[in-house]
Lab assay of single mutants.
Amino acid sequence: QVALSRTQVCGILREELFQGDAFHQSDTHIFIIMGASGDLAKKKIYPTIWWLFRDGLLPENTFIVGYARSRLTVADIRKQSEPFFKATPEEKLKLEDFFARNSYVAGQYDDAASYQRLNSHMNALHLGSQANRLFYLALPPTVYEAVTKNIHESCMSQIGWNRIIVEKPFGRDLQSSDRLSNHISSLFREDQIYRIDHYLGKEMVQNLMVLRFANRIFGPIWNRDNIACVILTFKEPFGTEGRGGYFDEFGIIRDVMQNHLLQMLCLVAMEKPASTNSDDVRDEKVKVLKCISEVQANNVVLGQYVGNPDGEGEATKGYLDDPTVPRGSTTATFAAVVLYVENERWDGVPFILRCGKALNERKAEVRLQFHDVAGDIFHQQCKRNELVIRVQPNEAVYTKMMTKKPGMFFNPEESELDLTYGNRYKNVKLPDAYERLILDVFCGSQMHFVRSDELREAWRIFTPLLHQIELEKPKPIPYIYGSRGPTEADELMKRVGFQYEGTYKWVNPHKL
């Protein structure tokens, strides 16, 4: 086992960053958080920038500027975001240094004079007029057009580079997404736009490419001749908990499936790229999406959770019991969808996408189930092999396979070949997804960000279904809070070829 401390991990990262040409360590950078008073800024962006600063992973002359409508001070920003920093008493001095680099400007999102004030403020910072500028839009999409237009007109660096990070949702359907994309691309070049999907920053999602293309053993079996089906799962054990009003506007397909799960599907299904260059990788992902037809209604199961009468606390409440959810809402909190990649490698292999709230566990994984062994000599005792990439929690890679049961006879039983990170790298604290992705933006690497043509294809696949749901308002199937979801989803999976045995229990190697 390799035991690495946080300091050692960050030392390795620093070495990698400083050796590259793309990370300008000594240049002045300004990180501007648009929507600095909001939840995302408070819980994710400010803490992430602090962790990067604490670990010495930001360029040395980096300033952080918050911008929002609320009249706040840096002290206010500190008060609301610091509880999420997880700072230790030993880091007190470092924390003071961090907040000394912070400033805040209040202004409207659609007022040109406010942006001119913001620009004057940035120019007044040390070497601010020639600094590289990175704008993070932690804002609702309704203000994107006004904000990007004003940034472009008043706040661009004339000497350094300018980059803009856009948070999902990128529209509600193909038409609104196209409108937003066309607007942003009329102001910024594609190499300046970073559409963030934080799932692409997760260690195991990034590991998929290495697993596939750096190991000879997987190449020959990664196709329709050997793989019976692919299941991509995202499960949350909690409901909307008072935030249903926002969720109800989008629903589970827009929230998770059309982005996170579809991105994971691309990494499983794509061909080997010409290189690890950002556009070479994204070219292959677009090719996969172009091979997927629009979702067919007979390959869809929609569910909505109801309270568990035997549960406790939140578990007793259904989705419609959330006071922020519109009365009688038919918005799905669970969806199972089957897609097919219609190309030579994957023809006929079902890709089953499942996601839901208020389920029995927290889990995100990719599961490849292989065909049955031909010419069975073990009297149907063999179960199908599976390769599982567990994204969260407890990152893991393992192969479910058959071995001989101890004893006199040739009785096979299920076991696993474990390729888990935790076994080799004991207690290594890896940077989280937002840390990686923000560092990628500083480096100018777009590999783990969504390109406009990729986004367009993703919406093309799901828009007809979303429009049909909005028009017909089908009643989702009720499922109990804390269950596996509607049984109809299991029946759909069985119908397209997935075999669920229920006889195997994964042993978490992190707890051995």
Results as ranks from 00 to 15, higher is better:
R254S: 10
R254N: 05
R254Q: 00
R254G: 02
V256K: 03
N259R: 02
L262K: 05
L265P: 02
L265T: 08
C266W: 00
C266G: 09
C266N: 09
V268I: 13
A269T: 08
M270C: 14
M270H: 07
S275H: 04
S278T: 08
V281N: 04
D283L: 04
E284A: 09
E284Y: 07
V286Y: 10
V288R: 03
L289M: 08
K290I: 01
C291Q: 09
C291T: 15
C291W: 08
I292S: 06
S293F: 07
V295D: 05
V295R: 07
Q296H: 15
V300Q: 08
L302M: 14
G303R: 00
G303D: 02
V306W: 09
G307K: 15
G307V: 05
G307H: 08
N308S: 14
P309D: 13
D310F: 14
G311H: 10
E312K: 12
E312C: 13
E312A: 13
G313M: 13
E314F: 12
E314W: 11
A315R: 11
T316C: 14
T316I: 14
K317I: 12
K317D: 14
G318R: 06
Y319L: 06
L320S: 10
D322C: 08
T324E: 07
T324M: 12
P326N: 06
R327F: 14
S329F: 03
S329I: 00
T331Q: 12
T333S: 10
T333L: 02
F334H: 07
F334A: 09
F334P: 05
A335K: 05
V338W: 06
V338Y: 07
V341Q: 04
E342G: 10
E342Y: 10
N343F: 06
N343W: 00
R345F: 10
R345E: 11
W346F: 08
W346D: 01
G348M: 04
I352H: 03
I352N: 00
L353M: 10
C355W: 02
G356R: 02
G356S: 02
K357P: 03
A358M: 04
A358H: 02
A358T: 02
A358S: 10
A358F: 04
N360K: 06
E361M: 07
E361S: 07
E361P: 01
R362G: 09
K363L: 06
K363Y: 00
A364I: 11
E365P: 02
E365H: 02
V366K: 02
R367P: 06
R367E: 04
L368F: 06
Q369S: 05
F370M: 10
H371Y: 07
H371E: 08
D372W: 06
V373M: 10
A374T: 12
G375M: 11
D376V: 05
I377E: 08
I377G: 07
F378C: 07
F378T: 06
H379V: 14
H379L: 10
H379M: 09
H379S: 14
Q380K: 13
Q380P: 11
Q380N: 12
Q381D: 14
C382Q: 13
K383Q: 15
R384G: 07
R384M: 05
N385L: 03
V388A: 10
I389L: 11
R390A: 13
V391K: 04
P393H: 07
P393M: 04
N394E: 15
N394R: 08
E395G: 11
A396P: 02
V397Y: 07
Y398G: 00
T399D: 00
T399V: 09
K400I: 06
M401Q: 07
K405G: 07
K405W: 10
P406F: 04
G407K: 04
M408Q: 09
N411Y: 10
N411C: 10
E413I: 11
E414F: 12
S415Y: 03
L417T: 08
D418F: 02
D418P: 00
T420Q: 09
N423W: 10
N423S: 15
R424E: 03
Y425P: 06
K426G: 15
N427D: 12
N427I: 07
N427Y: 09
K429L: 14
L430R: 14
D432I: 07
D432V: 07
D432K: 10
D432E: 12
A433F: 04
Y434E: 01
I438N: 00
L439K: 10
C443T: 10
S445H: 12
S445V: 10
M447F: 00
M447W: 03
V450M: 05
S452A: 11
D453W: 05
E454S: 03
E454K: 00
L455G: 06
R456T: 08
E457S: 09
E457K: 02
A458L: 04
A458N: 02
A458M: 06
W459Q: 01
W459D: 01
W459N: 00
W459A: 02
R460A: 07
P464T: 10
L465E: 05
H467N: 14
Q468K: 11
Q468T: 13
Q468V: 14
I469F: 14
E470V: 08
P474K: 14
P474T: 15
P476D: 00
Y479C: 02
Y481Q: 11
Y481P: 05
G482P: 03
R484Y: 03
R484L: 00
G485N: 02
G485A: 07
P486W: 06
P486K: 04
D490N: 14
E491P: 01
L492G: 01
L492P: 03
M493E: 13
R495Y: 13
R495N: 10
R495K: 11
G497F: 07
F498C: 13
Y500A: 06
G502E: 14
T503Q: 15
T503F: 09
T503P: 07
T503C: 14
Y504D: 04
W506R: 01
